[in-house]
Amino acid sequence: MDTSAYVQAVVEQTDTFADWVDGKDATAPVPTCPKWTLADLVDHVGSTQRMVAMLVGEQLSEPDSAFARYVPAPADSSQWRAWLRDGAAAAGRAFAEVGDDTPVWDPSGAAAGVPFWSRRLFGEACVHRADAAVALALPYELAPQLAVEATEDWLATMTSRGYWENRPDFADALRGNGQTLHFHATDASGEWVARREPDEVALERTHAEADVVVSGPATDLLLVISRRRPLAASSLDVQGDRAMFDLWIEHMNWVTDA
Rank of each mutant, 00 (worst) to 15 (best):
A28Q: 15
W164T: 11
R129N: 01
L60M: 12
G178N: 10
E149T: 10
L121N: 11
R227I: 05
V255P: 04
N177W: 04
S234Y: 02
A9T: 12
A258F: 04
Q145I: 06
E250F: 03
V148W: 02
A233M: 10
A9I: 08
E209G: 11
V148A: 02
D86G: 08
V224H: 12
N253E: 12
D43F: 00
A66P: 01
L231N: 09
R120K: 05
A185W: 01
E58S: 07
R85E: 01
L41F: 00
D257T: 15
D199S: 14
W164L: 12
R69D: 11
L181V: 06
F122I: 11
M244R: 14
D40L: 07
A130S: 15
V193Q: 13
R161C: 08
I225T: 15
L247F: 01
W192S: 11
D22W: 05
F170P: 02
D131H: 07
A185H: 03
S215C: 06
F183E: 11
A210E: 04
W105P: 05
R81H: 04
P72C: 07
V42W: 00
S234I: 03
R195Y: 01
E62T: 11
T14R: 06
G99N: 13
S65V: 15
G216V: 02
T151L: 11
A125L: 04
F95T: 06
K24C: 02
Q8S: 15
A66K: 08
A68Y: 01
T159N: 12
L146V: 03
D246W: 00
D187Q: 09
L203H: 03
A89D: 10
W164I: 10
I225D: 07
L136P: 04
L222C: 07
C33V: 09
P168R: 14
S234P: 06
G162F: 01
H44E: 04
V214H: 06
R196H: 12
P198T: 12
K24W: 00
Q49F: 00
A18L: 05
R229W: 00
T102G: 05
A5L: 13
T16S: 11
T157A: 14
S235I: 01
D246A: 13
H128W: 03
G240H: 05
V45I: 07
W192A: 11
H44V: 02
P63S: 10
S65L: 15
G23N: 08
E250T: 13
R175Y: 01
A28P: 05
D86F: 00
I225A: 10
D2W: 05
M158E: 11
G123I: 10
S234V: 03
R120V: 03
A111M: 12
W20Q: 13
P63Y: 03
R85F: 00
R205N: 07
A143K: 11
A96V: 03
D246F: 01
P31T: 12
T37V: 06
T151Q: 10
A5W: 08
A18P: 02
N253P: 03
H44C: 03
L60D: 08
T32F: 07
E141C: 06
S160R: 13
D106F: 01
K35M: 10
